[in-house]
Amino acid sequence: MKIILSGIASDSHTWNLVYLGLFLEERGHDVVALGPCVSPRLLTAACRRHAPDAVVLSSVNGHGYRDALAAVRALRAGPELAALPVAVGGKLGTAGHSREAEAARLRAAGCDAVLGDGAGDLDALCAFLAAPARVGA
Rank of each mutant, 00 (worst) to 15 (best):
L24R: 12
S39Y: 04
H50Q: 08
A87E: 09
A71C: 07
N61E: 03
L24C: 07
A127R: 15
C37V: 11
T14D: 15
L17P: 07
A113Y: 08
A109E: 00
N16R: 06
A51P: 00
A87M: 08
G96E: 05
A68R: 05
I4G: 08
D112H: 13
S98Q: 09
H50V: 02
M1V: 15
L115D: 10
Y65A: 02
T94C: 09
A71D: 03
G96I: 06
L69M: 01
F128H: 14
H50K: 04
R66V: 04
A108K: 00
A127C: 14
A137K: 12
V88T: 05
G90A: 03
P52T: 00
L81D: 11
A131H: 13
P36I: 09
I4E: 07
R66L: 10
V114K: 02
V18S: 05
K2W: 07
A101V: 10
T94I: 14
P40L: 06
L92G: 01
P132E: 09
A131K: 12
G62Q: 00
A124E: 14
S98A: 12
A83Q: 14
L75Q: 09
L81K: 13
V18G: 02
H97D: 09
G89K: 06
L24N: 13
K91P: 05
A33W: 08
V114Q: 06
A33G: 14
G116I: 05
A45K: 14
R99N: 04
R134C: 14
H13R: 10
G78E: 15
P52L: 03
A77W: 06
P40T: 02
K2S: 05
Y65G: 00
A45F: 06
A82F: 11
H97S: 12
E25R: 11
H13D: 08
G136W: 06
L20F: 11
L75K: 08
G64M: 00
A130W: 14
R48W: 12
A104C: 01
G89I: 13
L57M: 08
W15H: 10
L22T: 14
A83Y: 13
S10R: 10
P52E: 04
A82C: 09
V55E: 03
A131C: 11
L22Q: 11
A131G: 09
G64T: 00
K2F: 07
I3T: 07
A74K: 07
L20K: 05
T14Y: 14
A87C: 04
L22I: 14
D30R: 12
L24M: 09
A70P: 02
S39V: 06
A130V: 13
G136D: 11
A101E: 10
V86N: 01
G90Y: 03
I8R: 10
L81A: 12
A9Q: 12
W15G: 08
E80I: 11
G96S: 04
V38A: 03
A133Y: 07
R105V: 01
A108S: 01
A104M: 03
Y19K: 04
V38P: 02
S12Q: 14
A68V: 02
R41Q: 15
A133L: 09
A108Q: 01
F128M: 13
R48M: 12
A124I: 12
